[in-house]
Design a protein around this nucleic acid. Sequence first.
DNA 1: GTCCCTATACTCGGATAGCAAGTGTCCGAGTATAGGCGG
DNA 2: CCGCCTATACTCGGACACTTGCTATCCGAGTATAGGGAC
Lengths: 162, 162
Amino acid sequence: MRLSEGVEWAVHCCAILALLPPEATLPAARLAEYHGVPPAYLAKHLQALSRAGIVTAEPGAKGGYRLAKPATAVSVLDVVRAVDGAEPAFRCMEIRQRGPAALPTSEYRQACAVTKAMARAEAAWRDALRSETIADLVAVVGRETPPAAVTKAAAWFQEVLH
Amino acid sequence: MRLSEGVEWAVHCCAILALLPPEATLPAARLAEYHGVPPAYLAKHLQALSRAGIVTAEPGAKGGYRLAKPATAVSVLDVVRAVDGAEPAFRCMEIRQRGPAALPTSEYRQACAVTKAMARAEAAWRDALRSETIADLVAVVGRETPPAAVTKAAAWFQEVLH
DNA sequence: GTCCCTATACTCGGATAGCAAGTGTCCGAGTATAGGCGG
DNA sequence: CCGCCTATACTCGGACACTTGCTATCCGAGTATAGGGAC
């Protein structure tokens, strides 16, 4: 089981966008440059965030991306689902309905116990991600990041910000 | 994010093996036949369960697989980790250490907030799977399965059991 | 009748192809900007 | 000097190759069994 690498990029990008002044935008190319990742591929994931309504895109010169909602209203789960998709990790193939001891489909009214157990676990995972917002992450980063990094980042933003 | 299909097969196989009389074994080919899945591919996953110490394999004629531990001592998490691997779904690539605002590696002592949040969510997922044992699943199945299916399965086992 | 030996058939185990999804990249459509021109 | 128009440059958005890892398969090594033969 492996989560798409783009999820990490997307969450970090949301955290950066949350730090921007209101109404300011940052192009995908700058976000990619800041994180040291391929610009074209990051753009693909930012498009997914845009489709999900997490960020809004300003087209044209001096355009770029901005958070569509307050950082307190964007959970990590929102970002994960936007990039990685909403399908569950465990897909029940109903193998109990196959083989020599199978019954007609109409006999299986309850979801099988395996599926239920997996669904409970995934629900716990989603709950944990839902309870954490981008604003929470930003707060933690601001508390734990060395001041040197903050000033360095702030200086860089001054140059590229739209 | 997608869990290997073999996980579903492996859990179902463990549940079947838990129903067997003590010391009885069932070959991989019969387990595959019962579930209607490719025998060779299922064998691969059963090997993983064997390596993990969840089942033991009896070689030779009249051989097969048997649970290595009581069903109450095998959690669903054990099976998932045996088949799917123990690596976390989210792998932090430390992209914060890249780009124009990066600092020397020695400055990053804390794990980044994104990684921590993801780790918490995965811990919740694992906890949920760890709290469920194969014995629990068997109990639920025995309670919810129609009697017709139980007798049909029992008859089939009588024929193929070693 | 009992014991031993041998050949057999069946089991698991690891090494080997095929395919799908994620990874990475590119080019085209659209828009706000900046400069030049006319009034 | 001010307003308008046009050309430009930059942005996002979706469509196109490539690579890794999951899916699927096969064949070889090893062992308990079953049968036959000798005592």
